[in-house]
Design a protein around this nucleic acid. Structure first.
Length: 484
RNA sequence: GGUCCUUUAGCUCAGCUGGUUAGAGCAUCUGACUGUUAAUCAGAGGGUCCAAGGUUCGAGUCCUUGAAGGACCGCCA
């Protein structure tokens, strides 16, 4: 038997329902005066006020209405007599579907109608969805993901599902997690005493993917324009608020495109997603903006955000990203005040140095004060598949740097010339035989192509104004932690 | 992998140069009130001060080691 038809809170708050009888279901956020329930069903950050006729209601039912309880209420929508809301539901029937034990001790409902620390909520990630902050974050995350598919679909890109288990260990993007079906206490050994993966499930050593790029390249050289959007895994021992061991990445790959096309695509996509979130998640952004301002009140002026969240997002849409070469960036950094005064932990001395995050931050937050695209890095600090420039020293790479986040996109024009690619692989000691399937694209109908990787969680950090990447993915995985 | 910070009630925190019975707000429980907006008022219960060791007449406070959490750096998205 189906549950009686219910109307979502989001719908009630914008629709014409006064005088109508309907049913709602959700979780109690607060219960005041034995009379007013703030009911949230996740469809919006807002709550619907339920007015209980406490004089005629069963006292046993009223006792079960506590913060966190799931209830179903039938009643009539009326204009509110109070000030905080325009409409409310006058309850005629209340059914408690699930109580939330409020007694002290183990089993107590851990969410109270008050501010909790993000660290505490991280420990109860299975319940943090029910808070305003995480409700807002994950509604925004959904809309951002939807906007990404929408953007690429509208442009005629094909969504390609790259494999999560990969037989390649040369994706070149970091340490990999091993995938095996072996009994770890009794692994088959070969004659050389090493683990014999030929007896494993796949008949070879396999890993979790660190990037879908190589597979996306294969597809791009047939469909012209493709993208992947899936989980990726890095077994790096990273202890920062910007890294996860499991994160979601968007990787478009475009044939017949060069570095400039690549930058145009990335900038257009970022603006599209940010605009979609601004257009569709206004209430959630309002809440997060206010939360951020409150949180920053205790910080000194120079550590606060230069502008409120929504204004920052609008600014990002309205501004052309600053595009400059690595070489020009080094010039600016070499001659900037902090460098000359020794304020940088790592002084910029000469061309070829890898930029530290303090340098990137200076360029984005102090010098240009807007998103920056850095291009044409020295070949020695970039991956083997990036296209060699005419100068023989730099490659057609591009990194997009965002204020407060740092690198949000990393991409390049790919090396499509077989001889040049082979030479680079030899230089960087990457074995040709393992990559022959990839090299086939350069052997058969190769063409100029380009692509990039966008860290989805880093984009969500930016649009929500959150500070820790562990708070923008439902169940974060990082060194020492894989809870839930 | 490196550097630094934190750990006191269910939650958020205060606790001064070591001093005798460790506090507040919220939450919980009891009662009052009943058009509230994180309701209000009165009362009650609730503590292995992260753990182990040390210094001291005396340690929540000082020292050592460990654990857990966090920030930053490196690796990158």
């Amino acid at each position: 038997m189906a549950m009686a038809k219910r109307t979502k809170v989001a719908e009630i708050l914008v629709g014409e329902y006064i005088g109508k009888e309907l049913t709602v279901a959700g979780w109690v956020r607060s219960f005041r005066s034995n009379q007013f329930i703030a009911l949230n069903d996740g469809s919006t950050i807002k709550t619907l006020q339920i007015v209980v006729d406490f004089e005629n209601e069963d006292p046993e039912v009223i006792k079960m209405i506590t913060v966190g309880a799931a209830i179903k209420v039938t009643g009539t929508i009326v204009e509110s007599l109070g000030r905080g809301q325009s409409v409310e539901l006058k309850a005629s029937n209340i059914k408690v579907l699930g109580v939330a034990d409020a007694e002290q001790g183990p089993g107590q409902y851990p969410l109270q109608p008050k501010k909790h620390s993000l660290e505490y909520l991280r420990e109860i990630a299975h319940l943090r969805f029910r808070t305003n902050t995480f409700g807002a974050i994950f509604r925004i995350r959904h809309h951002a993901a939807y906007a990404i598919h929408e953007f690429f679909h509208n442009k005629g890109f094909l969504y390609i599902h790259a494999p999560i288990i990969t037989g390649s260990d040369a994706e070149g993007a970091g340490e990999m997690f091993k995938v095996t079906n072996f009994d770890m206490d009794d692994t088959p050994k070969g004659e050389d005493g090493k683990v014999d993966f030929s007896q494993d499930f796949f008949g070879k050593a396999t890993n979790l993917t660190v990037s879908g790029q190589l597979e996306a390249e294969l597809a791009a050289l047939a469909f012209s324009e493709v993208y992947t959007f899936g989980p990726t895994f890095r077994a790096e021992n990273s202890h920062t608020s910007r890294h996860l061991a499991e994160f979601w990445m968007i990787e478009p790959e475009v044939a017949f495109a060069d570095l400039e096309d690549n930058m145009d695509l990335a900038e257009e996509m970022l603006k599209y997603v940010i605009k979609s979130v601004l257009d569709r998640c206004g209430d959630d952004l309002d809440f997060l903006e206010k939360r951020l301002i409150d949180e920053e009140k205790v910080k000194p002026m120079n550590e606060r955000s230069p502008m409120p969240l929504k204004e920052k997002l609008q600014f990002c849409i309205d501004t052309d990203f600053e595009r400059l070469t690595y070489t020009r960036a080094i010039d600016i950094l070499k001659n900037c005040k902090p460098n000359k005064k020794g304020k940088f932990q790592f002084k910029i001395e000469e061309w070829g140095a890898d930029l530290q995050s303090e340098h990137e931050r200076y360029l984005v937050e102090k010098h240009f004060k807007k998103p920056v695209i850095l291009t044409d890095y020295p070949k020695d600090i970039k991956a083997f598949y990036m296209r060699m420039n005419e100068d023989g020293n730099t490659v057609g790479a591009m990194d997009i740097l965002f204020p407060g986040i740092g690198e949000i996109v990393g991409g390049s024009q790919r090396e499509e010339r077989l001889d040049v690619l082979l030479a680079r692989m030899k230089e960087m000691d990457i074995h040709e035989d393992e990559m022959s399937w990839f090299l086939d694209t350069r052997r058969f109908g190769t063409c100029p192509h380009a692509g990039f990787g966008l860290g989805f969680e880093r984009l969500i950090l930016f649009v929500t104004g959150m500070a820790n990447i562990r708070d923008v993915i439902p169940f974060p995985r990082f060194p020492g932690s894989a809870e839930f």
